[in-house]
Deep mutational scan, measured.
Amino acid sequence: TIDDAFRAIERAIQAENEGRYREALKHFLDGGEMIVTAAEKEASQKVRNLLLHKGKEVLEWAEHLAEWILE
């Protein structure tokens, strides 16, 4: 659900702030994927587009974090 997705993102932010970057990455990926999944089930085109945009933002952040971890 969207609530689960945002809880995962909150955990990711907390982990990132505490320097637990790999854990943060996992939570960002989980949250982003949950948002995209919820968007695919959404009946309203406007809400679907907003959710897809937010999911994409979260997944892009996860990608940047992963690249930073690997440096």
Rank of each mutant, 00 (worst) to 15 (best):
G32A: 15
V36T: 07
A39P: 01
A15T: 02
A66F: 07
H64M: 12
D3K: 14
E67M: 10
I2A: 04
I35D: 02
E16H: 15
E42P: 02
K41D: 06
E57Q: 14
W61C: 08
D30A: 14
Q45E: 14
V58N: 00
D3M: 14
E33L: 14
F6D: 03
A62W: 06
K41F: 09
E40W: 15
N49V: 06
G19T: 05
E16R: 12
W68D: 01
L51E: 01
H64E: 08
V58L: 11
A66R: 12
H53D: 09
A66H: 04
K26M: 08
E40V: 14
E42L: 11
V47G: 04
L52Y: 07
E60M: 14
R48M: 06
L51C: 08
G19I: 03
K56M: 10
K26N: 05
L70Y: 08
L52T: 04
A15P: 02
L52G: 02
E67R: 14
E71N: 11
A8H: 11
K56I: 07
A5P: 02
E42H: 11
L59I: 06
G32C: 13
A66Q: 08
R48P: 00
L70I: 13
K54C: 15
E63L: 14
E40D: 09
T1V: 09
E16S: 15
G31L: 14
I13F: 08
E71T: 12
A62C: 04
D4A: 09
I2F: 05
E63F: 13
L25F: 06
V47R: 09
K54S: 04
V36E: 03
K54Y: 15
T37P: 01
K54G: 03
L29S: 03
F6W: 09
I13M: 05
E60W: 09
E10Q: 12
W61T: 03
L52C: 14
L70T: 09
G32I: 15
D30N: 11
I13Q: 04
R11I: 06
F6G: 02
K54A: 10
F6R: 06
E71F: 08
E42Q: 08
K26I: 08
A62E: 00
A39E: 02
M34D: 02
A15V: 03
L51M: 04
E40G: 12
E40F: 15
A5D: 02
L29A: 03
E63C: 14
E10A: 13
E23M: 05
E57T: 09
M34I: 11
A38Y: 08
E23S: 04
Q45Y: 09
R20W: 04
K54R: 10
F28E: 00
R11T: 04
V47C: 13
N49W: 10
R48Y: 06
I69S: 01
W68Q: 05
W68T: 03
R11V: 05
K26D: 04
I69R: 00
F6Q: 04
W68N: 03
T37V: 13
V58T: 01
L25H: 03
A24P: 01
E23A: 06
D30Y: 14
H53T: 13
G19W: 04
K56H: 06
L65K: 00
A24M: 04
A5S: 01
A24F: 04
V47A: 06
V47D: 04
K56C: 13
S44E: 11
L25A: 03
T1R: 09
R22N: 11
F28K: 00
H27W: 15
A5E: 03
Q14G: 04
A66P: 00
G32M: 15
T1G: 08
R22Q: 11
H53Q: 14
I69A: 03
E10Y: 10
E18Q: 09
K56P: 02
S44D: 15
M34A: 10
V36Q: 07
R48T: 01
Q14D: 05
V36M: 15
L59C: 09
R22C: 15
L70G: 08
W61Y: 15
L70Q: 12
A62G: 03
R48A: 03
G55Q: 05
V58E: 02
V47I: 14
V47Y: 09
V36I: 15
L65V: 02
L70H: 09
L65F: 05
H64I: 10
E10T: 11
K46V: 12
I13G: 01
D4H: 10
H53V: 11
G31Y: 12
K56R: 12
A12G: 15
